[in-house]
C-alpha cells in the first residue's frame, strides 16, 4: 500500500472491526492476506510470537475464569498482526507527511516530528537489541533473566543519548515550533480497493453474523 492516508484509514477501520467481533477479526485477517509479502514478514518476527505468547497466557486465564478467552485470543492476535504488518510498511518521513496533511504545518509538523522520532527510536532499539544478542553469542553467553537489566539499560541509555543529540540538532537548526513540509501521496488503484474493503469490513463487523448472510443472499 503506497498511500499512507488510505493505510491509516484502513488500519483504524480494521482495528475497530477486529475489536468489535470475531467475524470482524477474521475478515481483517483475510484482508491482511491481500499483502502476503508483508504478512509473511510480520509473522517471521520473533517479537510477534513473544507478544502472542503473553496474549495466549492471558487468554487461557480468561477462559479458565469462565469468560470468552478464545474470542480475546483471536481478536487480540489479529490486532497485533495488523500492527506488525503496518509497521513493516512504514517509510521514513511518512508520518510527518501524514500529520502535516491532517493537522497543518504547525501542530501537524510538531506531532509528525514526534511520531517520526518515536518510529526511528523503535527501529534503533530493534537494531541495538539484535546487536546485543550477537554480542552475547560472541561471548558464548546464553540470554537469561540475569542479563535483562543490563540489556534494558543499554536500550534506554542509547535511546536517551540519541534523543539528546536529536534535541541539540533541532535547537542548532533553529527549531522552535512548526515547519514547512509539502507532503506528496501516490495513490494506486490497489490502495483504493483495499481501503474500500477495510471500510466494508468495519461496516460488516457492526452487524450480527446472521444478518451478513441475509444480506449476501
Amino acid at each position: 500500500m503506497q498511500d499512507a492516508r488510505i493505510r491509516l484509514i484502513s488500519v483504524i477501520s480494521l482495528s475497530i472491526a477486529t475489536f468489535l467481533s470475531v467475524p470482524g477479526a477474521i475478515l481483517a485477517l483475510l484482508w491482511l492476506f491481500l499483502t502476503p509479502k508483508i504478512l509473511k514478514g510480520a509473522v517471521k518476527s520473533m517479537a510477534f510470537w513473544v507478544i502472542l505468547l503473553f496474549v495466549g497466557i492471558v487468554a487461557i486465564a480468561t477462559q479458565l475464569s469462565g469468560n470468552d478467552g478464545i474470542s480475546y485470543l483471536v481478536r487480540t492476535s489479529v490486532i497485533i498482526l495488523l500492527g506488525f504488518s503496518v509497521y513493516r510498511e512504514w517509510h521514513p518521513g511518512e508520518f510527518l507527511g501524514l500529520s502535516v496533511w491532517l493537522f497543518g504545518k504547525k501542530t501537524g509538523f510538531d506531532l509528525g516530528c514526534a511520531m517520526e522520532m518515536s518510529m526511528q527510536g523503535l527501529h534503533e532499539a530493534s537494531r541495538a537489541f539484535t546487536r546485543s544478542r550477537s554480542a552475547l553469542s560472541l561471548k558464548g553467553m546464553q540470554p537469561g533473566i540475569r542479563l535483562i537489566p543490563a540489556m534494558g539499560f543499554l536500550l534506554i541509555h542509547t535511546r536517551l543519548m540519541r534523543a539528546r543529540e536529536q534535541a541539540d540538532l533541532l535547537a542548532t537548526r533553529g527549531y522552535k515550533a512548526g515547519g514547512s513540509c509539502c507532503p506528496e501521496f501516490r495513490t494506486s488503484k490497489r490502495d483504493i480497493i483495499m481501503g474500500i474493503l477495510a471500510i466494508l469490513i468495519l461496516f460488516f463487523s457492526f452487524m450480527p453474523v446472521r444478518d451478513i448472510f441475509i444480506l449476501l443472499m
Partner: peptide, 23 residues
C-alpha cells in the same frame, strides 16, 4: 570473535569488572 565498530553493542555487564569477566 568479532569486535563491533560501536563498543556499546558489546556491553552485557553493569560494571567494568563484570564486563571484563564476560570476556
Amino acid at each position: 570473535t568479532l569486535s563491533f565498530q560501536y563498543p556499546e553493542y558489546h556491553i552485557t555487564g553493569s560494571t567494568l569488572r563484570e564486563e571484563a569477566e564476560s570476556y
